[in-house]
Amino acid sequence: MPIEKIDNPNSIIGRKLNQLPGSGPEKGIQTLPGESERDIADFAGGSYLTTTVDTMVNWARSNSLWPFPFGTACCAIEFMSMVGSHYDVSRFGAEVVRFSPRQADLLLVEGTIVDKMGPVLKKIYDQMPEPRYVIAMGACATSGGFYRAYHVMQGIDEIIPVDIWVPGCPPTPDGLMYGILKLKEKIDRGEIRRS
């Protein structure tokens, strides 16, 4: 029996809020790590005055994420699995993999970024048009992982901002897809407004 999560009917991936793990009738893990500490107002989009146009724009953006796979290591292989035939990411409009930063709006950093690669990553991020989103995939890209070493960047947020962090080494394809959905939700809510 797999552990099922409680899905909010209003969103694909929403979780039951305001409940400590295990305190509800379900004995599964219901919250994301740390999510229980978050205010419900944050989730509702709180201080943003969301107009219909904005909603439309957000909807369009969130459903046409064109990823630039900045794949360097093991996580890139899992990304290959995700765009492969078994997991079908095109259902969310994110299958148009672009290798030119000018044509992409989602930077997927997959794998270890070492210091030698730092300027390259920064340059690619700078070339991407607004609005641009960044997902850091896997332990190395998010924090350096277990490479506390002389040549490894300790997380790409040293040089570029990150919207979604996906733990795992490497994350499973579904774990990464969850990250993409989470980003979609974030854009839908209008939380990321950088244009």
């Binding site: 290591a73 070492v114 690669m117 390259v120 490479y147 002389y150």
Partner: peptide, 22 residues
């Protein structure tokens, strides 16, 4: 060198079993 993750140096700072994930 764009993915030089210092495997050899990391091995020297970990135990024999811990090198396996590296």
């Amino acid at each position: 060198g764009y993915l030089h993750r210092c495997f050899e140096k990391m091995s020297e700072t970990h135990t024999y079993q811990q090198v396996i994930p590296y």
